[in-house]
Amino acid sequence: MLTTSPLRHAALAATLGLAFAGSAAQAADRTLLNASYDVSRELFADLNPQFVEQWQNDHDETVEIQMSHAGSSTQARAILQGLDADVVTFNQVTDVNVLAEQGGLIPEDWQSRLPNQSSPWYSTMAFLVREGNPHNIQSWSDLVGSDVSLIFPNPKTSGNGRYTYLAAWAATQQNNDGDEQATRDYMRQLLRNVEVFDTGGRGATNTFVERGIGDVLITFESEANGIVQQYGEDDYDVIVPPVDIMAEFPVTWVDENLDSDADRALAKAYLEFLYSEPAQRTLAENYYRVNDENVSEEFADRFPQTDMLRVNDVFGSWDNVMQTHFASGGTLDQLQRR
């Protein structure tokens, strides 16, 4: 019956090889799963090897950092449903809050566990304009000209788009001394000038760059500079308006997914590493703003001065923002009604 034909052995080995190729690749002593937002891939590709090396030197253990990237709301949902992420590195405070409020996976005061409200780096919104800035776009008020067409992702589905909406609102509100009706009129015109509403930041980038639609792409400063690096400095200019909003990038470890003290220590060390000088330098090289004084000074010429408003100061809390502006029938919906 059981003839030991070499061919059969080879076939069996191949089959098993396929099945276990995935797990065999991880010879590391420890693994850490980082659930992140979708445009952070290049960033963590730069950061992770540094941490792996540092951990290897300090603890004589090999660590494999696994990355999962998707929109941060998608990620929060997945973690609630059982994605076994050890740490989250998001671009939306609300999406981390969800883990506490809906899942009880982290404590409510997670923001006080790490410096700068658990945001190791931050960014702001920038305008990417085509070469020479033909429409002379310098500030938010320049975006509502009748011949200016805008590209930014839909604030309903994208954190990136939400920041653009809030930055425009906050800057205008400051400009006209809090006259809400004037702000609403401005916002209405701004939204009318949007040529394409993509669902996410990368989609908007593709629309602007690959399809060549629109005069201005509004996106994170880091993303705008990334595009310039990628597609050539001669084709685009990056403009940071004088009044802007602070976009935080909150991180935290997911308590419920960490089973042992050793895992907790690793997760915490990973996040603390993001605040260290080498990591902050890498972040600045990727055009993210950081709090480390040495690094900030070193890269000062990359980051134009701007009056950066905080969402919490202008709008109260994120919960409030979501309720009044982005919920169904909220201000955004009202403004888009014709």
Partner: peptide, 12 residues
């Protein structure tokens, strides 16, 4: 269907 349950962990 696969995208819904994947969690998109690279290499996994």
């Amino acid at each position: 269907a696969v995208a819904m349950v994947s969690g998109t962990i690279r290499g996994e």
